[in-house]
């Protein structure tokens, strides 16, 4: 049985913000993460605010400038199957299709996917770890097979669990947020929080703030986007390693690139070293080899997850060879 909470289902964003703007209130989108967190006592919630009666947060439409606007309540299934998304941003469609299993994709939303809580087994279990308000990170000296190799500063070593955030960051997407102080729009790249900045928060959202939409800019000419996820089993599982690519190609030359890793760091991890290795270069064997070596630059693996170094090298190599094969 879940702990007790009150439940509200407002019909306007104004009421939603008002209801959410008190300590202990949490938004309910698809509920696939929230219900699990309530069951495991990870979040102390005394009011659940359902976003399900809000009229304007569903669906995907093309914007006047050729980009896309995706309502935060659009399901992961809709994102993965949308002909518009598949045509313009295949990387996002692939990311969405790799989330969980079909039932959870039918129920889970893109807004909830960006705001989900981490999957560290100490955090989800009965440990009062640093992120949950305690004093220690148990994973650092404990079991950290699936944990981060970048960006953790040895403070908290979660990997960000989202499969849609890496392609969204690679594609330069933004989120529209509404809250008690009005509206703001920020890049998805600035939505998530590093442990060094605040180990108790996953996103920069303040109390009362709701994500309403995700904006995708008009895809540049010759954009080639993809998302590849490596996991321990084929049916639902979180990423051991993954990579979202957004490459602007000119023949076999990469003009510009954005490369974002999943399963790597507490936030979707932009790999500048790989970008530097491939941008303004022809995508040949030499470039690909350099990029594969570059991906582990600056990594700080733990004793139990050294294997991720080779995994990421192999992943980058395979993905870039896939791109170069398509060019022939």
């Amino acid at each position: 049985m879940l702990p007790q909470f009150s439940y509200v289902r407002p019909e306007t964003l104004k009421d939603t913000v008002k209801h959410l703007n008190v300590p202990g209130a949490a938004a309910h989108a698809g509920g696939t993460d929230l219900i699990g967190c309530l069951r495991d006592g990870i979040m102390q919630v005394n009011k659940v605010v359902s976003l399900n009666a809000l009229p304007d947060l569903h669906g995907i439409r093309e914007t006047a400038d050729g980009g896309l606007l995706i309502g935060a309540m659009t399901t992961i299934t809709e994102v993965s199957e949308s002909p518009l998304v598949r045509r313009k941003y295949p990387g996002l469609a692939q990311g969405a299709s790799e989330v969980a299993g079909p039932q959870l994709r039918n129920q889970g939303t893109i807004g909830g996917n960006l705001c989900q809580k981490p999957r560290c087994w100490y955090y989800r279990g009965e440990f009062n770890c640093l992120r949950k308000g305690g004093d220690n990170c148990y994973a650092l000296d404990g079991e950290h097979l699936f944990h981060a190799i970048f960006g953790h500063d040895r403070i908290c070593v979660i990997t960000h669990p989202s499969d849609t955030a890496p392609p969204l960051v690679a594609l330069g997407a933004k989120v529209r947020i509404i809250g008690p102080e009005g509206k703001r729009t920020i890049p998805v790249a600035n939505l998530h929080v590093s442990p060094a900045d605040n180990v108790r928060a996953e996103t920069v959202r303040k109390q009362g703030e709701v994500i309403t939409h995700i904006e995708l800019p008009r895809p540049p000419e010759n954009l080639r986007s993809s998302y590849r996820k490596v996991r321990a089993r084929r049916s639902w599982d979180f990423a051991l390693a993954g990579v979202a690519l957004a490459l602007e190609m000119d023949g076999d030359r990469v003009n510009k690139s954005r490369v974002v890793l999943s399963g790597a760091a507490p936030v979707p991890w932009r790999s500048q070293p790989v970008e530097n290795a491939i941008s303004n270069r022809r995508l040949n064997a030499e470039t690909i080899e350099k990029a594969a070596r570059a991906v582990v630059e600056g990594a700080d693996p733990l004793p139990g997850n050294m294997y991720k170094l080779d995994l990421f090298k192999g992943l980058i190599e395979e993905e870039l060879y896939t791109v170069s094969r398509e060019l022939r």
């Binding site: 009150s6 439940y7 509200v8 289902r9 407002p10 019909e11 009421d15 359902s50 399900n52 009666a53 809000l54 009229p55 947060l57 569903h58 669906g59 309540m73 659009t74 399901t75 299934t77 809709e78 993965s80 199957e81 949308s82 002909p83 598949r86 469609a93 692939q94 299709s97 790799e98 993809s226 998302y227 590849r228 996820k229 490596v230 996991r231 321990a232 089993r233 084929r234 051991l240 390693a241 294997y307 080779d310 995994l311 192999g314 992943l315 395979e318």
Partner: peptide, 27 residues
Amino acid sequence: IGAGAVSASLTGAAMVAESKPGPPEKI
């Protein structure tokens, strides 16, 4: 690759069921 089999398979051009906003306000 590595620890497991991967494929970024997308199911065919299936019909997209639009999610609709839900039932009315409740407190």
